[in-house]
Amino acid sequence: MKPLILLTGEDGVDMRSPNPFHFVKRSYGNAVSGAGGLAVLALEPRLVDDYVAMADGLLLTGGVDIHPGRYQDVFMDYDPNSGQPAPYVISVTRDSMDFLLCKAFLKAGKPIFGIGRGMQVINVVFGGSLYQDIELVMELDHPVGQDHKVEIAEDSIIHRLYGEEMTVNSYHHQAIKDLGEGLRATAVAEDGIIEAIEHEILPVFGVQWHPETYKTDDEELYHHHLTILEPPEEADPVEVELQEKAIAIKKPVPGIVTDADLEIPTDNPIFNYFLNLVRKGGN
């Protein structure tokens, strides 16, 4: 039996539909699968104990900001320079799911890997805090979508996997301020932003960058979509109608990519490390 890895997902609301929902980016599940784990999405915060009993490891995925009340700060819902409302998105229901699961996995001694927001969740669970905005509060330029170098601390997980220095992607506007108790920074960007953490004793670590996405289709799509202002040219309408009809009558569309065609990368170092940790049952 493959190790069962529980993923946390985003909480969504669509203006055009009355039903709130959960969602998760596919590359997280694919990366876990590529490292030999069985990825499932957690759905119900009231079943945390059942999820912990079932699963062997927890992957805290990226997403919207943590409510600053979780680290004894006041939500900066305006831009202090202009006085305009700030476009930050928080989700208290997602906070509940992430924090309950993180604490329960810690108690059970099962490994936890945090990515992006997930790393920040780990930091806050251990009593750390965050800068609410890199540009507005730290007054640093750390642009979203632009790769940068990090320096890696010796004798760390990241050092064993990647060496002294590496280039990472960057999709965040918040950063760690005070480190939580028992945590240490293991990778730091040139501007001083903490990019990776690990716990001194417990099987808990996280990265600010997105290893599940690095140099994948996700990143291509991200940069592609940034450039789209007009709808793309439509394909041959006859062909599209045939394909839409096939989907409508619940038949696979010939010639269109399916998940069975996807090649799932098996050589992602940090996911392989996580799964090895899970197989060892923690330490």
């Binding site: 709130p20 929902f21 959960h22």
Partner: peptide, 11 residues
Amino acid sequence: AFTAHGQMLSK
């Protein structure tokens, strides 16, 4: 965030 493929479920 990424406008990449995702999977969803109504609560």
